[in-house]
């Protein structure tokens, strides 16, 4: 256990946001879901008791009859905003006095930094480079993440949960977002920052970053493992495997989408185009953990090898 190495990584000023993220993200996930569960309990009561639904103001926050439903922005909201600005300023001041922004030696194209890392918020993408070629990890996936985020409101046809925390009414949506944001995006940023060392090799927390370390592992293409050797068949085999992955995970996603009576009802509201786009995005998102598992467990390099591109 190399505590000094661990401290060197964790205390690097540029890594503070990631170390902070390890605590902040679980906190806010808990903070949001706690309110969601509280609301779910009230929803249960309201659905069981139609009379209560008519008399109750349908929020978990307490409400007295004499109270106004709305407050004046001045002063009730503006004082909160002012307070937030003051607190943020104080935090920034203390942070800026305590920790110095990093400055390395002058740029030198002939002296490669090892490891040379992108800014921390792109380390998830850089980590993806281990598993996919750059055109997928660096171009296709970011584009699809942006497009996928933009279309979320246009493919989510569930009218419930509009403007309040809830888990029960939006199970599929919330699981999908937490999977994509926390489990994939944020975890891979943490791995890329804290775990990946020289040569982008995997160093568990506490392992010494050994610049001379060599890892003896041979990654093979899937067709080599199976034993196909000549080109048209390699390409066709890979295409079939990728097609099979789309079919299987599409089926799995469909089973998830239609798991409950409620989600089947939502599916009925969706157009074919909405369904196809959602499936495509879900399958491509799933391809990342599947490829990670294939690499880490079976040492698979490429699944689909063609003369033009490799996946």
């Amino acid at each position: 256990m190399d505590w000094h190495q661990l401290w060197t990584i964790v205390s690097l000023p540029d890594n503070i946001p990631i170390v902070g993220m390890i605590f902040i993200l679980p906190f806010f996930t808990w903070y949001g879901l706690r309110q969601a569960f509280a609301n779910d309990r009230l929803i249960d009561r309201l659905e069981a008791d139609p009379d209560l639904a008519k008399t109750h103001h349908r929020k978990v926050e307490p409400f007295q009859k004499g109270w106004a439903r709305e407050l004046h922005v001045w002063p009730y909201l503006l004082r909160m905003e002012f307070l937030a600005a003051v607190i943020v300023t104080v935090i920034l001041m203390v942070w800026s006095i305590a920790l110095d922004a990093p400055l390395e030696e002058p740029a030198n194209p002939s002296l490669t930094m090892n490891p040379s890392k992108a800014p921390w918020y792109f380390l998830g993408l850089q980590e993806m480079l281990v598993y996919f070629d750059p055109w997928i990890a660096g171009v296709l996936m970011p584009t699809l993440i942006i497009i996928g985020l933009i279309v979320i409101p246009y493919i989510d046809e569930n009218p419930l949960g509009n403007g309040y925390y809830t888990f029960r009414q939006r199970k599929f949506a919330i699981w999908t977002f937490i999977f994509g944001f926390i489990i994939l995006w944020s975890t891979m940023i943490v791995i890329g920052t804290l775990i990946r060392g020289p040569g982008w090799m995997w160093f568990w927390p506490g392992m010494t970053w050994d610049h001379n370390r060599v890892i003896f592992e041979i990654n093979r293409d899937l067709h080599e493992i199976v034993g196909i050797t000549s080109q048209p068949w390699i390409g066709l085999f890979g295409g079939a495997v990728v097609g099979g992955f789309f079919a299987v995970s599409g089926y799995a996603c469909h089973r998830l989408i239609t798991a409950t009576a409620f989600s089947r009802k939502i599916l009925e509201r969706m157009t074919l185009a909405q369904y196809v786009i959602m499936q495509a995005l879900l399958i491509i998102m799933l391809s990342l953990p599947v490829k990670i598992a294939a690499r880490l467990l079976f040492r698979v390099k490429y699944v689909w090898v063609t003369p033009w591109f490799n996946i």
Partner: peptide, 28 residues
């Protein structure tokens, strides 16, 4: 220092804002 840390903080708060908006279904 302040410019750099505020930039890091902004990337973080923007993501948390998005997370909250998703959890409350405010994009509907």
């Amino acid at each position: 220092n302040m410019h750099r840390w505020a930039a890091h903080a902004m990337v973080l708060t923007v993501q948390l804002h998005m997370f909250r908006v998703f959890l409350t279904g405010s994009y509907k």
